[in-house]
């Protein structure tokens, strides 16, 4: 860990450059770090898309540290980049450095996560997916698939995490329109395969083999993958006995959808450079104020053969 962080810090400090052309738009991108599967894919896509758009991208990896991120943003300001994109490590503590960017006349865009600043004019807009919408899409698919009659077991993400809270809210907002749809069991599986499996095992016992349960809604694919294993080990047929809907669309879930052991997954895109850069480039051209949140559309993928 020590070695890798030193190594990455060295890379981050050097601030990688891709294409260098005097006329190209220069954008500084401060990324959170490289945790999980999703974020490294996001970083790779941002670099690849920048090359395609002919953008001179200065990429800085903050290794999950707020102070490294502030240093990176300040170095972008000193280098007089045309625009700064920040995927913030934390929501607070941004007022000062964003004011410095504003004084230098460099527009700041937020990607993925939000910041908490008193003066919203300090950034142009936030470009990200909508967790709430993901929950709604999952709920809408299930309402249609079950024709509005469904007892649901829910695998929540890490308690208190924004995606868990918002996906739950969005899902509940939809199913509350259907009097015969309700969540009968809900527990946290901590966004992990292991957690999802353990929770589903407990649900199977406490509902007498999921008797009367029509669907499993998981806040991410990993937990759903664990739930699928737990159901198979209990002699149940996930995707047939119980509808399986979740969020992320990771590679392993694609396989499950193809096998018909899962029914639907809402995609959390990692290839979002093609949504972010046009917004930034257009703003640099016409300086037209934007709404404070530009939503990246979510896609819902379903099994080749629908369940039931």
């Amino acid at each position: 860990m020590k070695l890798t962080s030193l190594f990455s810090a060295a890379i981050g400090a050097a601030v990688l450059m891709s294409a260098t052309s005097a006329l190209a738009v220069t954008i500084g991108f401060s990324q959170v770090g490289d945790e999980g599967d999703w974020r490294p894919a996001f970083s790779r896509d941002m670099q690849a898309e920048a090359k395609k758009e002919g953008i001179d991208l200065k990429f800085a990896d903050a290794q999950g540290k707020e102070e490294a991120q502030l240093t990176a943003v300040r170095s972008f300001i000193a280098q007089k980049v045309d625009a700064i994109i920040i995927a913030p490590v934390v929501v607070t503590g941004w007022d000062q450095v964003l004011r410095e960017a504003k004084r230098a006349n460099i527009p700041v865009f937020l990607a993925d996560r939000d910041v908490d600043v008193t003066d919203k004019s300090l950034y142009v807009t936030r470009i990200s997916a909508d967790f709430n919408l993901e929950g709604k899409l999952a709920g809408a698919w299930l309402a249609q698939a079950s024709k509005g009659n469904c007892n649901i077991v829910e695998l929540q993400g890490t308690t208190g995490a924004a995606p868990a809270i918002e996906r739950k809210k969005g899902f509940e907002a939809i199913i509350s329109n259907f009097p015969n749809m309700k969540i009968i069991k809900t527990q946290s599986g901590d966004f992990t395969t292991d957690g999802g499996k353990k929770v589903m095992e407990a649900f199977i016992k406490s509902t007498d083999n999921l008797k009367g349960v029509c669907a499993s809604f998981a806040h991410n694919d990993n937990m759903q993958l664990g739930a699928i294993q737990a159901m198979k080990e209990a002699g149940l047929k996930p995707g047939k006995d119980v509808l399986m809907v979740s969020v992320d669309y990771v590679p392993a879930m694609k396989t499950e959808l193809a096998k018909g052991e899962a029914n639907a997954s809402v995609e959390l895109r990692s290839a979002i450079g093609k949504y972010i850069y046009p917004v930034v480039l257009n703003y640099l051209k016409d300086k037209k104020p934007l709404p404070k949140w530009v939503v990246i559309p979510s896609d819902l993928h379903t099994a080749a053969t629908p369940g039931n």
């Binding site: 945790e35 999980g36 901590d190 966004f191 992990t192 395969t193 292991d194 957690g195 499996k197 990993n222 993958l225 664990g226 294993q229 392993a252």
Partner: peptide, 13 residues
């Protein structure tokens, strides 16, 4: 534990 979840997830296992 690894065979149980059919996957390697070093962050959470």
């Amino acid at each position: 534990l690894t065979a149980d979840t059919h996957t390697s997830d070093p962050v959470s296992i």
